[in-house]
Design a protein around this nucleic acid. Sequence first.
DNA 1: TTAGGGTTAG
Length: 637
Amino acid sequence: MSHALFTSPPPTNTTTTTIPFTFSPSTRLRPSSLLPEQASLLLSQCTTARRLLEIHAAILRSEILHHTVVNFRLQKSYASLGYADKCQILFRRTPDPNVFFWTNAIHAHAIQGLCFIARLLFTEMLSSDATPNGYTLSAALKACRLSFGKVVHGYAIKQSLHTQPYVATALLDMYARGGDVEAARFLFDEMPEQPIVSTTAMITCYAKQGDLAQARQLFDEISQRDSVCWNAMMDGYAQYRKPNEAVNLFRQMLKSDSRPNEVTILAVLSAIAQIGCSSSGKWVHSFIKNKDNRIQLNTKVGNALIDMYYKCGNLEDACLVFDTMKEKDIVVWNTMIAGYAMHGQSQKALELFDMLRFRGLWPTDITFIGVLNACSHAGLVEQGYRFFRLMKVEYKIEPKVEHYGCMVDLLGRAGLVEEAYDLILGMNGIEPDAIMWGSLLASCRLYNKMSLAEKIANHVVSKGYANSGTYVLLSNIYAALGNWEKVTSVRQLMKESGVQKDPGCSAIELGNKVFEFVVGDRSHPKSRKIYAMLDELNAVIKAHGYVPDTDLVLHDLEEAEKEKALKVHSERLAVAFGLISTKPGTEIKIMKNLRVCVDCHNAFKLIAKVTRRKIVVRDRSRFHHFSEGLCSCGDYW
DNA sequence: TTAGGGTTAG
């Protein structure tokens, strides 16, 4: 590697006065030639690690490191470029570091998430000659959880630093991160003025607790909003599955004085992915492409785009973004693998996994969730076991409950229900969770494993894990057997436990709008036409061999009534609405909150055939691409 | 020198 310090010719004139005082970032440095002022200036302009190394070398050759300002600026530069370790080496060699040095070293580690070291440094500082000030406390608090944070709080009060706005906000933020809303709110109310930074910290605090109403109230009270507070509120909505509110806020923000930045884009793309509204996603993509908006298509933004596209059903667009990204970190690969898995393209997902290993990237626990999920959707039991072992043996990743969950899903879907059950029983030190039991229960339902299902259900109910899904699955199992007495008792149990069944809800995107339907929905203005279309569809697909699978219907109804109940499943309504609202041949895309039922799956294959349409359905676990009487999942899901 | 917002998942 060529290096400016070693390739430039020796200076003809050794006096430093000949060195120009203004440097561009590319100015080559001459050896043994820097004055302290010049070094400080260079360091303040330095933005890359390579340049910093050059300057560091020049400082050493110029023998000016003992100069306090030079030494401090050098440590600060390493800190701001994320090199906490280098910063610490220099710090340890600094005789009698003053409060600036201590604060910088603590801050350097805190922002890199090296919280333990940051806290150690702070403790060490307390027994040194330097005394922490407000700056130091703000830096240290970033590295604190509640327990140690309270100690710092005590120290702040003792030194009367707790009322300084920066310290108070850092304290507020510390309590907020620890989930102590009351303490955070107390500090907030105690502030004589509530700067926007503190208000935003408070908004984030509420949002993290899911108290979006309180967060919104504070947000609405801000008179001069900046980008950060918009982002905090938007992300709160996105995280708490209120994607429509997040997108609405984004629209308002565009009309305001604040400009969206990278964080805004990440939040709004996450919201759009949840809605599944690809036209909005494409709009945001073009917003990013527009240079005037100054959004860099870096790994995070690229990743959010891939995530959004595949969740909106546009796997091709997701691949296009993936292929054109110059720099891809492991997160980006993880997302693309998850995307292929969710669309049932398991082979592609596994190829991608091989490719990332070939490139020398180190898979993470999340990579393996994608890979195992891919195996699960394709019934690749042997492969799944192989990856499960590979993860432990080669990559030293201890499987978490999520990985076991994938394996249980994989085995259960493949009909190896008892094997899946044994796997759960054999988990060492890992407590099975509700999702895992739910998955196994679903497999029991699929393969009619009654006694195991009952055993699991009793266990789940007694452990208090039961959610609406558990009860619904159990009652479905009894309903399939025609045991209506048990169905009634499960429904009674469900009522007593206060658990409510999530109503099935499907959304369809038409033009730039998203229309939602719940089961038996009659609220749409075109309701009459929708139901007429449903009747017509039912008649036609029956002629093509459709037999309603009434096993799943909960209620103890006559056959004709059961058929009626199936016909009004939300996804059916959405398809009917799509058919009457679009030109022949247009692809129909539907997003459902729950898993699509067997009966709707059968119906959709035939609807796609008779209407010669492609129908794409995103359900809770994957995508189904229906076309010409078949589904991309091969009826395995 | 200092405080607030952020990517992937069964």
